[in-house]
Design a protein around this nucleic acid. Structure first.
Lengths: 336, 336
DNA sequence: AAAATTAGGTTAAGCGCTTACCCTTTCCCT
DNA sequence: AGGGAAAGGGTAAGCGCTTAACCTAATTTT
């Protein structure tokens, strides 16, 4: 059997309280005793049970991360950021891929609560508003990530999606484009991104009068292709010369479709993505994209989460960071 | 406070043992009592503490996954596979990105052991042979994933790396290529992949006489570019017409470098990757790659791990699955 | 030199479950 | 009708820690 605190205590000739104190480095212990106990711990290769300690201290040191899919690079990068923060404070991370399935999300949430995780980070929640409301009512430490729910008094860390959409569009307009297309996915932030897109056009005095140039779909390469195929299949004077996609995967789908339609990028078509995942560097041409300051976001999320953990009754805060346009090779001046 | 099993018992007018029994659906309980208790649990919104239950039952229901980096698509996809298996059996997953840093790996391992995870899956360990040996000696349930340590009697699930390298090379030879390059990364399996590469050449009666065409580096896009730059910078009659890279990221680096050197792919240069991650579909041209049957591998890993968890003294098993060549658009007949 | 601190521990009561074992009833057989 | 088995549930002892409260001896204070 694994040695327990009792074994250490007996071997060192002290009480378990003393052992506990050297373990947690609190209480008053003489150097002599401390060393003695430490030595015994070494000798026995003692690994204190964090589950026992969690039972008494009410801290598990693990946090739960709910995301749509860890295999999606944006969320993988998010997870990495959170993991690093957690690790820095001696904790760890349980990853839960919900596939944007409410039932699965509910099952995972329940599991995490029963495991008594210290807190939850919920990235790109989708339709679990009611569940999240209940969690908040129960004072569960939690922060929404990358997508807020305005109606809820929840902590959250987001990028200014509206601004991102606006920025992307402004940039395309500055390149001379006048007929723009936009492809939205069904993640919460995208609605705002599209609003930013539309407002940028409006502010430039341009009408958005071709509904075929606005597509709503879910974030896969294939859907990006399909959406692009539909837009690019229009008559020459209708089809967009630039497309803003609400995430990189969709944008890359557009790249692919455009190429197989014989278009050259960025000569014939400009494309802007969103998220600035590693994929933007992988594809060809490399993708101009709106970056979320992911590292900063995960750090802030962890800070907010810690606040709630330390004081579940503390007021929740919302943090919104600025997106940044990263220009690569998928955008250029309007043709002709 | 959260309700405990005592609250439920009191409210239902039974003993905590009875509550525990309906919770775990064992023991003999009349339908009437069971329903009564269940109703009370509902009313109180009772969430049984898995940490308390873990303390007595010695099962946490969580497993630890050690990988170099969750932000790397191959490992993200691996994690997703394992997560699904865990979830299916009602458990979950703690993800640990080690950055291939031995000390970090050691810290994480210790943390996982103290958290009393049920078992470990170690993907692409790097240089922690001694640590793993100790874990095995301690009967820690564990399976090595994607890279085995032959000298250790450990369970493992791998792809036949040698075969994969051989297959990739055979294919390139069949396209008429005679001057081949190979770029290896420093993950454990790659050594075997290179061996397969060299043996395929040997078996075809071709010498591998230009050491400049074998590069050893770590797996990043940039390193792929650099390696390619060096190889392609050679005199026309020396430089390879086809390159086998030991992972997709390196391969894509080659693609990029070749393009900026003015080469057209696959007309002037063929490239084969390894792992068949989603990146192979993202890049352009799409990448021919050796696929690891990831889904099957994660399932097998979970089966082996469960075996060890159920019986830590059970003999460990090694499973090796076959890789598969997935042909896309980065490979073609030898030029000229 | 007596009183008050302080240093260095110990005691013991939980934390919220599981489970072996025991105790009543009730049922069934012969 | 009497005895054994089965059904239904309770008792209590842990699991391996943390921590408030307490105790004793040594040190300081005045």
């Amino acid at each position: 059997m694994k040695p327990t605190i009792y074994d250490v205590a007996r071997e060192a000739g002290v009480s378990i309280a003393t052992v506990s104190k050297v373990l947690n480095n609190n209480g008053r212990i003489s150097d002599k005793t401390r060393e003695k106990v430490s030595r015994v711990m070494e000798e026995l290769n003692y690994q204190p049970s964090l589950v026992a300690s969690a039972l008494t201290s009410r801290r598990t040191g693990t946090i739960g991360l709910m995301i749509p899919d860890i295999a999606n690079p944006f969320f993988a990068e998010t997870a990495r950021g959170i993991e690093d923060c957690a690790q820095q404070q001696g904790g760890d991370l349980i990853v839960c891929s919900t596939d944007r399935d409410d039932e699965k999300a509910a099952r995972y949430t329940s599991l995490l609560l029963r495991k008594r995780v210290d807190g939850l980070i919920i990235a790109s929640h989708t339709g679990q508003t009611e569940m999240i409301r209940r969690l908040l009512a129960d004072r569960v430490p939690l922060v929404l990530f990358s997508a807020d729910i305005r109606s809820l008094e929840s902590s959250s860390v987001t990028v200014d999606d509206y601004k991102g959409g606006y920025q992307a569009t402004e940039y395309l307009l500055s390149l001379g484009h006048r007929r723009l297309g936009v492809i939205s996915d069904n993640l919460p932030g995208s609605k705002l991104r599209v609003e930013g897109f539309l407002d940028a056009l409006k502010d430039a005095g341009l009408p958005f009068d071709n509904p075929a140039n606005l597509t709503h779909t879910s974030a896969t390469l294939e859907n990006g292709r399909k959406a692009a195929a539909a837009m690019l299949g229009q008559a020459e004077d209708l089809r967009p010369t630039a497309v803003f996609a609400c995430n990189d995967l969709l944008a890359i789908g557009v790249l692919k479709e455009a190429r197989s339609a014989g278009l050259s990028i960025p000569r014939d078509l400009s494309v802007v993505g969103f998220d600035n995942t590693m994929l933007a560097e992988i594809c060809h041409p490399t993708l101009t994209s709106i970056a979320q300051p992911l590292r900063e976001m995960t750090e802030q999320a962890m800070i907010l989460l810690n606040e709630s953990i330390d004081n579940p009754a503390a007021p929740r805060r919302k943090i919104m960071l600025m997106p940044e346009l990263v220009i690569r090779h998928s955008t250029g001046p309007v043709p002709g």
